[in-house]
């Protein structure tokens, strides 16, 4: 596919005079994007891992205004004797060794929802997990706010993430899905633009999951419930907010898994260089089966 240079988003304007093609080294990610990416990568890791430890203190989720041990939980991680399980609704999945019951680093059998290798800190401490989670919450929200303001000012959002009607057409989305399923990624200059699946997933994270995880987090604070009672109404009560917080965090983790898989499939060295230094080598033509 040929793309005229003037079609490129303003953000991807570069100074090299020679025509760009496969193999050219170009400027890909701005400093603002790269700074936020790595701040956020660290912050999300800390938030997810300390969040799992907080969940360990009461590994049950409810809908509504209240919810405790005598009330029905829609999700629960627990153990029958030494057999761990994850229960969602009436579906119970055995998870011995991973969730509910597992061996710690010292070989000791532990009855806790999430295993030590996935939590901050490694051994049970709700108090320390809260210290980490609440301190890094400022970094998460602060960095997101700065990045959003910066990306509006330098037109990163308008230029790179805006979804046009043509892109949103079902046929185009389906085309991108089939291309991704065949692991055929754009080459040459086309690789410089986010495709529709990238735009949709980045927008879902930036404008959906991250604001949701922050707002539902705030809704669990009893003092903010007094000052910002609207949030309680919005999410249908504190226990619903806690459930939505967990679901949004799971969504962020799912994004992380797909994101890493895509980096590996698209060429991990080139992709890592572009998110660290900003420079990206335009991928060449893929070998087509004859």
């Amino acid at each position: 596919m040929e793309t005229a240079e003037h079609d490129l988003p303003a953000a991807n304007a570069f100074s090299e005079p020679e025509p760009l093609g496969p193999g050219s080294l170009v400027r890909r990610h701005r400093l603002s994007t790269r700074l936020w990416h790595w701040t956020n990568a660290l912050t999300i890791a800390v938030m997810l891992m300390s969040g799992l430890m907080i969940f360990n203190a009461h590994p049950r989720l409810y809908w509504g205004k209240f919810g405790a041990n005598f009330d029905p939980a829609w999700l629960e991680i627990g153990a029958h004797g030494d057999s761990g399980y994850l229960r969602i609704g009436s579906l119970e999945i055995p998870t011995t060794g991973v969730l509910g019951t597992w061996h710690n680093g010292a070989g000791k059998f532990v009855h806790l929802a999430f295993p030590g290798w996935a939590t901050i800190p490694t051994s049970y401490s709700l108090a320390d997990a809260r210290v980490w989670h609440l301190a890094f919450a400022w970094v998460l929200a602060g960095a997101l706010a700065l990045y959003m303001a910066w990306s509006l000012a330098n037109r990163h959002f308008q230029g790179d993430l805006r979804i046009t009607a043509r892109e949103a057409a079902p046929r185009n989305i389906w085309h991108d899905i089939t291309e991704h399923a065949r692991l055929r990624f754009p080459t040459g200059i086309a690789a410089l633009r986010y495709n529709i699946l990238q735009k949709l997933s980045y927008c879902a994270v930036l404008f959906g999951l991250l604001p949701l995880v922050i707002l539902t987090g705030l809704t669990m604070s009893p003092n903010l419930n007094a000052g910002l009672s609207l949030l309680l109404e919005l999410f249908g009560g504190r226990q619903s907010a806690r459930s939505l917080h967990f679901i949004a965090a799971s969504g962020l983790f799912a994004f992380f898994l797909v994101h890493i898989a895509m980096v590996v499939l698209a060429g991990p060295i080139n992709e890592m260089r572009s998110i660290i230094t900003g420079k990206y080598r335009l991928p060449g033509k893929r070998e087509e089966p004859s």
């Binding site: 009461h58 205004k65 919810g67 041990n69 709700l126 806690r242």
Partner: peptide
């Protein structure tokens, strides 16, 4: 509403 630090209400 009584909110335990553990997460239940």
């Amino acid at each position: 509403r009584h909110d335990c630090v553990e997460g239940w209400s």
